[in-house]
Simulated scan of single mutants.
Amino acid sequence: MFPRHRFDALTDGLFGVAMTLLVLEVRLPDGVEPHTGGELMRLLAGLSPKFWPYVLSFAVLGVRWRELVRARPGHGEVSLRYINWGLSYLLLVTLVPFTTMVLGRFASLPPAIWLYSANLAGMAICAWRLSAALPAAERDQRGDGVVGLVVFLVSAALAVAFSFRGTPWACLAFLVNGLTPLVERIVAGRRARLA
C-alpha cells in the first residue's frame, strides 16, 4: 500500500505544471514590432488559432483535475493498481501541452485533432480505471463515473469526425463535456425510477 497524500501531491504538481506550460505556446512572433494600436490588435487577433486550444486544454485539464480530486475523498492508503493507473493518467496529463501545441499550429490538419483527441480520450479511460481501482466503499460513495467517461469519449469522437471536414474548430466538440452534469442527472433519475 502507498500513502495517498504523496500521490495527491504529485498529481497536483503535475497538473499545475501542465496547465502552466500550455500558455507558452501563445506568444507573439519574434522580431515583430507593432507601431500602431491597430497593428498590435491584428497581431493579437492572429493568436486566436493558438489561444483557443490553450483555453480548451486548460478547461479540460481543470475538469479532469476536479474529477480526480472528487474521486479520492480520503487520505488513507491506495493500492499499487491505483498508483499504476494514476501514473498512466499523469503521463497523459503531461502530454497535453505538446498535443495542444500541435493542435495550435496545425488545427486544420486532421492528424493534429486525432492526436489531441487520443490524448484526452486516453486520460478519460485512465481516470475511469483509476476510479475502478478505488476501494469499494469509496467507489460506491462516488459512483462509477461511466456517464462522464461516455460523454467525454463521444466528444472526442465528434472532434475526430469533424476533423475530416478540415476545420480548425473541430475540437470545439469537446464543449459537449459541459453537458455532463445534465446527462448525469438524467441517468441518475432513470436509475432511481427503475430501482
Rank of each mutant, 00 (worst) to 15 (best):
S131Q: 07
L92A: 13
L109N: 01
H75W: 10
G86H: 03
A118Y: 10
W65A: 06
M101S: 15
L87E: 04
C171G: 09
L22T: 09
L179T: 00
V176C: 03
F162A: 10
G178R: 05
F15V: 08
K50T: 13
Y116L: 11
E33L: 15
G13K: 09
R4T: 07
L95V: 00
V150C: 08
M1N: 06
L115Y: 15
M41I: 05
R6F: 05
G86E: 04
L80A: 10
C171Q: 14
A45Y: 03
L80K: 09
E25L: 01
G37C: 01
L95I: 01
S108A: 02
P29C: 07
A121I: 03
L68E: 09
L24E: 07
V146A: 11
T36Y: 10
Y82V: 03
E77L: 15
A18W: 06
V183G: 02
G166N: 08
G189V: 01
L149H: 11
R105L: 14
V78C: 05
V96T: 06
A157T: 11
R129A: 02
L47T: 03
V26S: 07
A107R: 07
R42F: 08
R64F: 05
G74A: 14
A192G: 01
L40R: 13
W65I: 12
S88G: 12
F152D: 06
W128A: 05
A71T: 06
F51L: 12
V23Y: 12
A45S: 10
R42K: 05
F58T: 07
A192Q: 01
R70F: 06
G145L: 05
A112K: 00
G13F: 12
A132G: 14
M19A: 15
L61H: 02
A173F: 04
F98Q: 04
F51H: 06
G62M: 08
L87P: 05
M123V: 04
